[in-house]
Design a protein around this nucleic acid. Sequence first.
RNA 1: UCCCCGAUAGCUCAAUUGGUAGAGCGAGCGGCUGUUAACCGCUAGGUCGUAGGUUCGAGUCCUACUCGGGGAGCCA
Length: 501
Amino acid sequence: MQTTTTINKLHEHVDKTVTLQGWVYKTRASGKIAFIIVRDGTGLCQCVLERNEATEPFFDEAKKLAQESALTVTGVVKADDRSVGGHELSVTGLTPVHASTDYPITPKPHGIEFLMDRRHLWFRSQRQWHILRIRATIIDAIRRFYNDRGYVLIDTPIFAPAAGEGAQTLFPVDYFGDQVFLAQTGQLYLEAACMAHRNVYCFGPTFRAEKSKTRRHLTEFWMVEPEIAYASLDDVIQLAEDFICSIVTRVLKDHRDELVEIGRSLDDLEAIKPPFVRMTYTEAAELLRGPRVKEFLENDLAQKKTRVAELDKTIEELDAQAKGGGKQWQKEKAAAGAIEAREERSEITEQIANIPHHMELAANFEWGTDLGGSDETIISRLHDRPIFVTHYPASCRAFYMRGDRSDDRLVENFDLLAPQGFGEIIGGSAREEDYDRLLAKLKHENLPQDQYEWYLDLRRYGSVPHGGFGLGVERTVTWLCGLKHIREAIPYPRMMGKFYP
RNA sequence: UCCCCGAUAGCUCAAUUGGUAGAGCGAGCGGCUGUUAACCGCUAGGUCGUAGGUUCGAGUCCUACUCGGGGAGCCA
């Protein structure tokens, strides 16, 4: 008669008695009625506990159950719009499984350091819970995209020999007395598999030892890298565009409510349609140095200064309210508002301090150097669709990228920048298929040829035009969820100086 | 590696030009039958990151260090 079910299935059990197994998310209790919001891993449900004959044996105990206590609860499912999730449970039975006390993460605001030290608990909170579910969908969409198109999954090694693209940014590992490194890409290995299976991809963790402390860096992150044979740069770019569109479509299909819940604009994501913007590196360099960027940043600066002035006024008013007369809850609300306004002000003040530097970097951009993080952010902010930036100078790109046959200075590569300031999510290229050209590049970069003999074999035996790219999963999650920082896009972020929990 | 900012109660933050450390939340107790960050009353809670220095007097000023935040470089 009574069934155990989960919150996401409650709509199948309206007016029936069911049992839920979960944890206390929040409680509010009066003398003779208690509201327990239960989460069970599939959603939230308000359980209403009225003091009556049925509930008398456990009412007092239930009322005192603190946040994150585990419990099973039985009751009649009622459809109720007032309740989160649209259903609630009128409780007839309740069994505590584990009483929790002093759960550290309260419904009130916390600082980032506090939350990061408690990441293992933090992702029980709604916002984090939504983000990690969207992440899971994105990863599923990635796998399906390639599997459905007949790509063969090739797992590339995580222990890699010194030979890479630049050994200084790698994590060294002692390997039975030899030094190896944690892999920063599977690409070279993937190219070999590409010549065996034609269309392949690898998907796994990637490690970078760069000492970067910014909103877009992790030391350990997930990357998916497709590689396709008999392909030109245009083919690879087309693949990237189809790929991104399929991920966005899937996320919009499966997670509309969650996206709204975490404050992501659906309109912005629905605007992600082909064709994406395309520009060459040279065009990007001209854009950065030109009047459009200067004007954009000057406007940005002026707007931010206006905003700070507004916030100053708001803070003053709220402070006065918080100290003045009125109800206790009104004063509290004013105080909370003041804290929020101060946070926004300090964030914007920091941005204002950085703008002149970013303007200078953009205005003085020199052809031949790589686009900086701030340069990419500027280009990204000027668009509301992803931007392909192609044909970078060979001097600032890896040795394996295919030389542009019409201009020796360039390579056939691309970066894909997510719009609205989110920046780079993909880096890719056509690979140099010509043995002599590749060997010349190796020598030019002073790379040890003996370490790359196996790679050169790929150009000795049946070399064909081919190419691929790498997509950073966390950066994609950050973009699609509209996060301010990449650390929320992965369950256990690893950053410079951070590896607990 | 470099530049900027910060560290005050378990948490989030205040503390006028250097002059006796405060509020809210959380916790504990009591009250309230429809709450949505519930509300009302009471109670407990502090070596102001660490070490020096200036001063009659330092949370406040100076120096170094530790930890954290943002950015540059580098990158997905």
